[in-house]
């Protein structure tokens, strides 16, 4: 959290510090390529990207942005190729749909001498990007696991809903498992809910039919947590178990804030990281601030005590 705010402050400071230098430069084009808003987190990420672009275009008239959203990796590759061919971009901010298929096309952008910022998912080859801004997926799983460990000192039976089968999901679940190792917590069921409310609802319904006793659920995502909670309501087993989601959806944060017993905590994976990445990239062109490197935005545990700091009622997510 602190990291994001710090970058924003940095961006602002730099902008104020070097307005003359900025205006003297030619106009620059920054391409932004992100996955389409197919689930809550991606929707939030899209929102933050658009907001950042709007804000920056207003602040720095010499910057132009090209924003493209893609429904699949193939489309994203085409988007990037189009940006290179027809929009003559100076920099690319990309949140790769998947690492491997995007590595080659992004590498060609870098080889053409353009600035490359990679967000969230690393490329399959190291050293291509100038700037890497990412969430911490193993951290996301680890923080969740540690919370389970703390809440269930004497162990217990839990079920886990996983996301769409991807590296991200694997890293999270792997770290989660490691974190609860030896704690006496037993995972009695694990299925893919695909970060989707409806799928999570049906999967949870079936878990509830299958297991007479469940102490807690790691829904691993707030969209899935919505479906899980609804299924638990339907079965009338609200008092039996609690649910941990993730990614900081505002409704869930609100429940944490209000001390809802069934939703005791949340784990961050801020969709705003895209805004951070765009802002830092913009800095590269409007100031002399040193911006290259690697920034990992850690996953933090949100509890009732600190929930206030994470609650943004205006965000769509």
């Amino acid at each position: 959290m602190g990291v994001v705010k710090a970058f924003k402050a940095l961006a602002l400071a730099a902008a104020l510090a070097a307005p003359a230098a900025a205006q003297a430069q030619d106009s620059k084009v920054i391409g932004v390529s992100i996955p389409a808003a197919t689930h809550g987190w991606a929707g939030g990420m899209n929102y933050h990207a658009q907001e950042a672009v709007k804000r920056l275009e207003k602040t720095y008239p010499q910057l132009k942005f090209v924003l493209a959203t893609a429904g699949d990796p193939g489309k994203q590759v085409s988007d990037i190729e189009d940006m290179m061919a027809t929009r003559n971009i100076d920099a690319l901010v990309v949140l790769p749909f998947e690492s491997t298929p995007l590595t080659g096309p992004v590498k060609r952008v870098a080889e053409a001498g353009k600035w490359v910022t990679v967000v969230d998912r690393g490329l399959a080859e190291e050293g291509i990007e100038d700037l890497y801004v990412a969430g911490d997926n193993p951290g996301f799983g680890r923080v969740a696991g540690e919370f389970f460990r703390e809440r269930m000192p004497s162990g217990g039976k839990i079920v886990v809903l996983r996301g769409i089968p991807t590296t991200i999901d694997n890293e999270r679940v792997e770290a989660f498992r490691k974190a609860i190792e030896g704690s006496g917590i037993e995972i009695i069921g694990m299925e893919h809910g695909n970060w989707n409310r409806d799928s999570a609802f049906t999967v949870m319904q079936d878990f509830l039919s299958k297991h007479p006793k469940i102490d807690a659920v790691w829904a691993s995502d707030d969209d899935m947590a919505v479906g899980v909670l609804e299924a638990i309501n339907q079965a009338g087993r609200q008092d039996e178990m609690w649910v941990l989601g993730g990614a900081g959806m505002k409704e869930m944060i609100k429940r944490v804030m209000d001390g809802d017993k069934r939703v005791p905590a949340n784990v961050t994976y801020p969709p705003a990281m895209i805004a951070t990445a765009i802002e830092i990239t913009a800095l590269r062109f409007v100031s002399n601030a040193p911006v290259s490197g690697r920034f990992v935005i850690g996953s933090e545990l949100i509890t009732q005590e600190n929930a206030q700091n994470f609650y943004f009622p205006d965000s769509p997510f």
Binding site: A36, D198, V226
Partner: peptide, 12 residues
Amino acid sequence: PRLGSASSATGV
């Protein structure tokens, strides 16, 4: 009424 919500992920 089931989940009280609709998103781009509904009905995929």
